[in-house]
């Protein structure tokens, strides 16, 4: 498990990163925590002749919460997320989800930016960010632009990010109501068999808004608007749960792998979603 030879760069300015990306095109890749990229290189599933480390770039490590908006720098680690008191108060679902990613060692290195930019359907943060209606800020040769998380994912490892663009931060409107991140996995450090991110608003015993996204059940994360809609206006009773599950099942498209066959995954997706909704509702 030794990667092919590569040149290593550690620029200190974003301009230099963009210049390198422009120069080498598809032969270059940025590296954040390296905990998705390096395993791929070691397996020689990715050959990256020019590896650009983002660790020395300033200004990508900040977390800010103001005016109802949370902004998380791309290089904020999963460990930072878990240990940020302000975030725990403002968006506890981030912590609940991050604690279910990998293990402490991986979380010390793995970043939010890497997790959402990677494009692996197994990553937990893309679905989470879709649930929270996050926006990703990208910078490239043509300047800055932003893309909604719900529009970002095209297929496995295919995203709206251009090759020469770098993801700099993730912005989230401070979430309202109850939350839950529910994940079934085979063991510590495993990607989800099925995972659900749920954020629910309750007023006078009725659901007034609900956002639902699923992980590792298609070749992209699945934001299921219909599943959320099925809860709105209800008291989140058994019938509403059934309707939400049915709507979600209409949106996912799991494939068989070592975690199990399709029928199993669909069944578990429904169970996990119901549990997430129930927990979120109880906290709403």
């Amino acid at each position: 498990m030794i990667p092919a030879a590569f040149d290593y760069y550690r620029p200190t300015k974003m301009d230099d990163v963009i210049a390198l990306l422009k120069e080498h095109g598809d032969d270059a890749r940025v590296m954040a925590g390296g905990h998705s990229l390096i395993p791929m290189m070691k397996l020689r599933m990715a050959e990256i002749p020019h590896l650009i480390d983002l660790q020395a770039i300033d200004g990508l490590n900040e977390i800010s919460i103001k005016d109802g908006q949370i902004t998380i720098g791309a290089m904020v680690t999963q460990h930072d997320l878990i240990n940020h008191a302000g975030l725990e108060a403002a968006a506890p679902i981030l912590r609940e989800a991050a604690l279910q990613i990998a293990d402490p060692q991986v979380r010390y290195m793995g970043t939010v930016g890497g997790n959402v930019a990677n494009g692996d359907p197994g990553n937990d943060m893309p679905g989470l960010m879709q649930c929270l209606d996050a926006t990703f800020a990208l910078v490239g040769p043509g300047g800055e632009r932003s893309v909604a998380a719900r529009d970002f994912y095209e297929a496995a490892y295919m995203t709206a990010r251009e090759d020469e663009e770098v993801l700099t931060s993730v912005s989230i409107p401070v979430p309202q109501g109850g939350y839950a991140y529910e994940k079934q996995k085979r063991k510590i450090g495993d990607y989800a068999t099925a995972a659900a991110a749920v954020q629910i608003v309750k007023e006078d015993g009725k659901c007034t808004a609900a956002s639902i996204a699923m992980t590792n059940l298609s070749d992209t994360p699945i934001y299921s608007a219909d599943a959320g809609a099925a809860l709105v206006g209800t008291a989140v009773d058994a019938a509403a749960l059934t309707a939400a599950k049915a709507a979600m099942l209409g949106d996912i498209d799991p494939t068989e792998d070592n975690r199990g066959p399709v029928a199993f995954k669909k069944h578990v997706a429904g169970v996990i979603l119901a549990r997430a909704i129930e927990r979120a509702w109880s906290r709403a």
Partner: peptide, 16 residues
């Protein structure tokens, strides 16, 4: 007896 095989056992016994 991993998750999906246990699930399959339950499924085949009609427990779902």
């Amino acid at each position: 007896h991993d998750h999906w095989r246990i699930w399959k056992t339950a499924n085949e016994l009609g427990l779902h």
